[in-house]
Amino acid sequence: MGALEAVILTIITASTPLLLAAIGELVTERSGVLNLGVEGMMIMGAVCGFATAYTSGSAMLGVAAGLLAGVVMSMLFAFLTQTLMTSQVATGLSLTLLGLGLSGLIGEAFTGLPGVKLTVLDIPFLSDIPFIGPILFGHDILVYASLAIPLGVAYVLFRTRLGLIITAVGGNHHSAHALGYNVIRVRYGCIAFGGACSGLAGAYLSLAYTPQWIENMSSGRGWIALALVVFSTWLPKRLMIGAYLFGTVWIMGLYVQALGVAIPAQLLSSLPYLVTIVALIIISGNKTLTKVNTPACIGQPFAPER
C-alpha cells in the first residue's frame, strides 16, 4: 500500500463522522432550528450502535440502532423546543450533557469488549484496481452514505418543493404559516433528520472508526460538526469541502510529525481548529454570502397565531 493511498484512506475515515453529523444539523438549521445537542445525539448513537451490534452480532443492526437512538434523542429536543417552546440553546446544551451521561450509564457493561466491525462493501473487480480501487470502492456503507446524503440534501433543498418549504419555514415562519404550511411539523421532520444523521455519525465511530465502546468517545466531534455548518454557509456541497478540509489538516498534522519535521506537536494538534477558525473569519467577512443563506429565523421559537 502506497503512502499517499494510506493518507487518503485515513482522511476519509476521519472526515466521515464530521460530515454525517454536520449534514443533519445543516437541514435542522435550514428549517430555523438550532440544535446544539449534536454531540449528545452522536454519543448516544455510538453506544446504542455498539450495544446492539455486540449483542446481536450484526453491525448493520447496530447502524440501525444508532440511527434510531439519534432520532429518539432529537425527538426529545423537538418536543421540548417546538411543543413546549423552551429555549433552543439551553435545551440543546442539556441534550449534549444528557447524552454524555446517559451513554456512560448504558455503556458501563460494554466497556473494554471487542467490537463488531462494519464490513467493507467489496465490489468485484472495481475494488481490486490498484490505488483507485481502495480509495473509491473500498469502504463501508456509512462512508458512501456520508457522500450520498449531502448530494441528496442539495438536490432536495434546491430542486424540489419540499426544499422550498423547508427554506421558507427557516427564512420566515410567519409567512410560511400564512401560506398554509405547518411550521411545527416541518421542523419536527428536520430535527428528526438531524438526529438520524448524528446517530449514524456515532455508529460510525463505534462500529467502523474504532470498533469498541469508550466513554466520551465522540471527544468533541459534535461541536466541530456544528462549526462546519456555519463554515459552509448552509450549503451542502461546501459542507463536504469543509469536512474534508478539516479531516485533511487533522491527518496531515499526524503525518508531518511521523516524518520528523521540526514543528511542535502541540501546534500540529491545534492546527485543524485554527484552520476552521480562520475559515470562519474569512467567510463571515463576506456579508452577502452569509446573508443570502443564513436561515433568518434560526433559533427563534414559533407559536402559531390563532
Binding site: E5, A6, T10, A258, S269
Partner: peptide, 23 residues
C-alpha cells in the same frame, strides 16, 4: 514517534497508527 497529547483518545490513536503504518 507521534505525540497525540492525550492518554486516551481512541480515534486519534487509531489515526496515528494508520499514518505510521502508511509511512
Amino acid at each position: 514517534v507521534i505525540w497525540v497529547n492525550s492518554w486516551f483518545d481512541p480515534g486519534k490513536e487509531a489515526d496515528a497508527a494508520k499514518v505510521l503504518i502508511g509511512q
